[in-house]
Measured scan of single mutants.
Amino acid sequence: NQASVVANQLIPINTALTLVMMRSEVVTPVGIPAEDIPRLVSMQVNRAVPLGTTLMPDMVRGYA
């Protein structure tokens, strides 16, 4: 089972991601792999991401 990136807090739209906003968790469906967390830092979300939501590739500008 692969860990995915999950929002550690509410992340408002257009917010640049920081390490404290994300955690890794084994979830279904699988989202962005946890090993990509360092790559996600400073990328912006293109929608509001509620606490506990799995980050999907289409939620992060420039990721996919």
Rank of each mutant, 00 (worst) to 15 (best):
42 S>T: 14
18 T>H: 04
20 V>E: 13
7 A>Y: 01
61 R>K: 07
43 M>H: 10
31 G>Y: 02
52 G>W: 05
5 V>G: 02
31 G>T: 02
53 T>E: 14
13 I>L: 14
24 S>P: 07
44 Q>R: 10
52 G>V: 02
39 R>P: 03
64 A>H: 06
57 P>L: 05
34 A>I: 10
16 A>V: 06
7 A>V: 15
58 D>L: 15
28 T>P: 02
55 L>P: 01
25 E>S: 08
46 N>E: 09
60 V>G: 00
62 G>T: 06
8 N>K: 07
41 V>H: 04
33 P>E: 05
61 R>E: 14
13 I>T: 09
64 A>L: 11
17 L>T: 01
50 P>C: 04
35 E>D: 08
48 A>I: 09
25 E>R: 09
53 T>W: 11
6 V>H: 02
42 S>V: 03
63 Y>C: 03
61 R>N: 12
24 S>E: 12
45 V>D: 01
21 M>A: 06
3 A>Q: 10
54 T>I: 09
23 R>F: 06
45 V>K: 00
5 V>N: 00
10 L>K: 09
27 V>H: 04
64 A>W: 03
9 Q>R: 14
26 V>W: 12
50 P>D: 13
7 A>G: 04
34 A>Y: 07
10 L>T: 09
21 M>D: 06
38 P>M: 09
2 Q>V: 15
59 M>A: 09
50 P>M: 08
51 L>S: 14
1 N>K: 14
39 R>S: 09
6 V>M: 06
30 V>S: 13
55 L>S: 00
25 E>P: 01
47 R>V: 12
41 V>M: 07
16 A>H: 15
21 M>P: 01
35 E>T: 14
42 S>K: 10
28 T>D: 12
45 V>I: 10
41 V>T: 09
55 L>T: 01
41 V>F: 06
35 E>P: 12
35 E>R: 15
23 R>S: 13
37 I>M: 13
57 P>H: 07
40 L>R: 00
60 V>T: 02
62 G>P: 06
28 T>I: 13
28 T>A: 07
53 T>D: 10
29 P>G: 04
7 A>F: 02
61 R>W: 10
45 V>S: 07
21 M>L: 07
38 P>I: 11
8 N>G: 06
5 V>A: 07
22 M>I: 12
54 T>F: 02
51 L>R: 12
61 R>F: 15
22 M>D: 01
30 V>T: 11
